[in-house]
């Protein structure tokens, strides 16, 4: 696919540019000092991923059922209000959300994971709901007319035909999540944010850079793999009809 090639080319180009710029401005010996932090990067990177995986995983398994329930005819009446509430929620800055989570739950893994969970929950729920509501009427009518039960319609027709929208929401949400994990360090969540914030505070450029580069690479890698995953998972026939439209 030329499109994904282009995608990778653009990313590589950008990374190369950033690395060149950094290399040009680096003092001698910075690279060696950065390598000194390698064990920390690996350890904190593990924490980083763990926090992201727990919060995003929990968000995924709650957000999709929530979106499904909201899109059911019986709930549609209230769904608009819930969506408006979620939309307002999504405009709240992440630092503010994490800070408030800390005031309620204290310091550590739990408040960090909870804050990230809330941040990740919103886009997935919103897109699941919108995706299901936008399944063309004639498809659901055909499914009803052929005698599918409500559950069969959901699993065989509605979900497969809204998967690309749900995926888009999930990708946005996971990117947001992995991008916010470094901030979660501030409320005791650990992760690569520790190197970045400590580096800034101690004016230790190699420490800060080792954390920042690892954080950026991790975020870009997660986004890229989710993009590839969505290409694989979305039913073939739907990708075709999307290409046609």
């Amino acid at each position: 696919m030329p499109k994904s090639l282009l995608n990778i080319a653009a990313r590589t180009l950008l990374m190369a540019a950033v690395i060149l710029l950094l290399a040009a401005t680096m003092e001698e010996g910075t690279l060696d000092e950065m390598l000194y932090y390698m064990p920390d990067v690996l350890y904190l990177g593990g924490q980083h991923l763990e926090l992201a995986a727990v919060s995003a995983g929990l968000a995924l398994i709650t957000a999709i059922p929530l979106g499904v329930i909201l899109s059911r005819p019986a709930c549609r009446r209230y769904a608009e209000y819930v969506m408006q509430f979620l939309n307002v929620g999504a405009t709240i800055p992440t630092l503010a959300l994490l800070a408030m989570s800390m005031s309620f739950l204290g310091i550590g893994f739990l408040p960090a994971a909870f804050g990230l969970y809330v941040i990740t929950l919103l886009p997935i729920t919103r897109n699941t709901y919108t995706g299901l509501c936008n399944v063309p009427n004639h498809l659901t009518e055909a499914a009803r007319g052929m005698g599918m039960t409500a559950m069969q319609r959901l699993l065989r027709v509605e979900l497969p035909n809204s998967l690309s929208v749900i995926f888009a929401g999930t990708r946005t949400a996971f990117s947001l999540n992995i991008g916010t994990v470094p901030i979660a360090y501030l409320i005791g969540g650990g992760g690569l944010g520790e190197l970045v914030f400590m580096g800034i505070r101690l004016n230790d450029t190699p420490m800060m850079l080792s954390g920042a580069i690892a954080t950026a690479l991790l975020a870009v890698a997660v986004d890229l793999s989710l993009g590839l995953l969505s290409q694989i998972t979305i039913p073939k026939g739907i990708r075709m009809s999307a290409g046609q439209a």
Binding site: L139, A143, G147, I238
Partner: peptide
Amino acid sequence: DTELRRRIGYVIQQIGLFPNMTIEDNICVV
């Protein structure tokens, strides 16, 4: 409802073929 509908063939103007299924799977739905 479902029992009744499975006994009746139904064709609509927008056709309503399921884009996620092959032609074979579409025909075999009922």
